[in-house]
Each structure stands twice: as C-alpha cells, then as structure tokens.
Amino acid sequence: MSLDISVINDQGSAQLRIVGEVDMYSSTQVRRALLELVKQKQSPVIVDLNEVSYMDSSGVATLIEGLQMCGEYGGTLLIVGLRDNVREVFELTRLDKIFKIYQNIEAAMAR
C-alpha cells in the first residue's frame, strides 16, 4: 500500500495533496514531501486531506512537525478537507484547536 502525493507550487504557496491511508508505514512519504516544501520556505503550505481515508498518530505527528517548522520561518500550514474519521483523530487529540482547518482549498486561499 502506498500513498499518492502530489505538489502544486503557486507563487510561494504550495498545495500538498495526499490520497490514501496515512499510518506508520506511509507517513514517512508525507514527511519527506512536507520537509521539501519547508526547505523551500513555502507559505502557506496547504495540506489537502480530502482523499485521506485514514490517519493515525504518526500522520498527525508529521503534520505537527510541519506546522512547527513552518512557524520557524514565519510561514503557515493549513489543513483542508478532513473526512469525519480523520477529523475525529484531530478532535480526540485536541489538535483541531491548533491547526487552521478549512473545508476546501478555495476557503483556505481566501482566508
């Protein structure tokens, strides 16, 4: 099982689109892609989770790391499109209060 990850760069901002299940096996792929965008000091980094059907604590940990690294250069990391079961993980860990979460890319871009 592997993830499908694509990146769209647009004038300093970046969209990271993830398709599949994010667990301890696949979260390393997300981490690699996210670190690359952070290295380029992109902002905002918009992580599109619309097509993510499962996420465990390793996926959440990767996003926390990305959020903190974006903060180091004054950038922002935004999350869009949480499915109910993935939103539940954010709510259980109270990270829904930490991340800026939007319904879709348009809402995140218009923030």
Binding site: D56, S57, V60, A61, T62, I64, E65, Q68, V89, L92, T93, R94, L95, I98
Partner: peptide
C-alpha cells in the same frame, strides 16, 4: 500532556480514549 504541542506520544492517549 495534550497541551504540549510536539510530534509523538499520542498513541497511548488514543488507545485509552477510545
């Protein structure tokens, strides 16, 4: 502790919460 925002350490919390 949930107020410490850092990667990791959430697995056991999720197990006991659920």
């Amino acid at each position: 502790p949930l107020h410490e925002i850092r990667p990791g350490g959430l697995g056991v919390y999720l197990i006991t919460s659920v």
